[in-house]
Design a protein around this nucleic acid. Structure first.
Lengths: 174, 174
DNA sequence: TGTGACATGTAAGGCGTTACATGATTAA
DNA sequence: TTAATCATGTAACGCCTTACATGTCACA
């Protein structure tokens, strides 16, 4: 069967940076990675278990307070191998799955009231998103320094901003 | 549970234009709709059966040659209702699920050979895609005429071209 | 002392991909 | 006559979402 399981590579990539808990990993999808991938904790925890069984990762326990013990996961050599192999593979291009565009496709009438309403709503949502992305850029890459040491992350954020800007410009032409 | 099932709305939207077979619907995802959504025939046929049971669509049989009988599906009033209701709903924004961007995020070194190779490969693939989109535009909307009567489709294609152009420009800056 | 964030799991079920399977029609 | 396309299905399985479930810790 074999489906992609790209989530696995994200987990490996993040653990390759530093040891993290399932909760930490889940949090990543609310910020940075959330711009271009999504995942819930209910997907993360079983995956971590599976990946540990496959010897891609391991975990050590960290005592927090008096009772709570966190599981912090670490990447292992097999994990590094398949992560690096994945980076070397050609990347597939998915179709974008944009619900607004899907609806738009079915609207023939340029003067439809619905169209006007839909575009206005998207403009609002997309503008908010762009503002949020610009804020991220200001927070994370205020100067040239970090743009060098986290170059990929910087490029990704730059792209997200460029994409939203282009999207908004396009919306204005509808 | 209830997941989105947007495929259902695409089927309704297409049948709202004209009666189609499962095969016709499947084909749509290789061309037009393929720019922004994907589906296989193995997903389409069971869905058609389910939607027929729910009285959203019906089918009539069409004799082809001497033996083959096609099933051509038609939208019914309940189907039109839920399709139009969907158009009125706010549209969700998914994260984009772009594998190249995913990989890029994990590459810190601006001078990495891998990065150079990856970007070159994407530039090639994306340029081909842009060329294909431009061809589509020339084929489907050569003049103002169809841009008026299939306005949504025209906008969607215009967006795809704009998006790819922006993507390529961004790739060149990496 | 209570609220919100931290932290970790499981279960049910829908969605999507790949593979398996079969047969008819058309055009070179 | 044979290859490509048309045409319609099922099966297995992995992925993802939603919901259920429980408990700790820090801080106000």
């Amino acid at each position: 069967m074999a489906q992609k399981n790209r989530l696995q590579y994200i987990v490996l990539g993040l653990l390759n940076i530093e040891s993290r808990t399932g909760y930490d990993l889940t949090k990543s999808f609310d910020s940075d990675i959330g711009e271009f991938w999504s995942a819930n904790h209910s997907q993360i925890y079983p995956l971590l278990k599976k990946m540990e069984q496959e010897n891609l990762i391991s975990h050590h326990e960290v005592q927090v307070g008096t009772k709570l013990v966190k599981k912090s996961y670490d990447i292992m050599s097999d994990g590094k191998k398949i992560f690096n192999a994945w980076l070397e593979e050609p990347s597939e291009i998915d179709s974008s799955h944009d619900e607004f565009i899907l609806k738009l496709y079915f609207i023939d009438d340029k003067k439809s009231e619905l169209l006007e309403k839909m575009v206005a709503e998207q403009l609002s949502v997309r503008s908010d998103k762009l503002e949020h992305l610009n804020q991220q850029m200001r927070d994370k890459f205020p100067d040239q320094d970090k743009r060098q040491t986290q170059y990929g992350h910087y490029c990704v954020l730059k792209h997200a901003i460029s994409r939203e800007t282009d999207y908004i410009e396009w919306l204005k032409t509808i």
